Amino acid sequence: MKIITYPAHIHKKILAELEDSTYREVAARHRINPNTLATWKKQLQPAERMVIRT
């Protein structure tokens, strides 16, 4: 299994998809673990967190 690191702007783009989809759906689309999405969301600054509503 190859480990891929995504830059911060890609994290935000992927997390924005959570507005219309579930963690599981977004994770499957990008071939990442749903827990990774949760970790990325926790790492966002508080102001950025407000933009992504789940």
Rank of each mutant, 00 (worst) to 15 (best):
M1S: 13
K2R: 10
I4T: 12
I4C: 06
T5S: 14
T5E: 14
T5V: 12
T5G: 08
Y6V: 02
Y6W: 13
Y6P: 02
P7Y: 09
H9T: 15
H9M: 13
I10W: 08
H11R: 10
H11L: 07
K13D: 09
A16F: 14
E17I: 04
E19T: 11
E19H: 10
D20S: 11
D20T: 14
S21F: 15
S21W: 10
T22Y: 00
T22D: 04
T22C: 02
T22L: 01
R24F: 09
E25I: 05
V26M: 06
A27Y: 05
A27P: 06
A27F: 03
R29H: 10
R31W: 02
N33K: 09
P34D: 02
P34G: 00
P34E: 07
P34T: 06
P34R: 04
T36V: 11
T36N: 05
T36M: 10
T36S: 03
A38D: 02
A38L: 12
A38Y: 09
W40L: 06
K41L: 14
K42V: 08
Q43C: 08
Q45P: 02
P46R: 07
P46V: 02
A47T: 12
E48Q: 15
R49Y: 00
M50F: 08
M50P: 00
I52P: 06
I52L: 04
R53H: 11
R53C: 09
R53E: 14
T54L: 15
T54K: 14
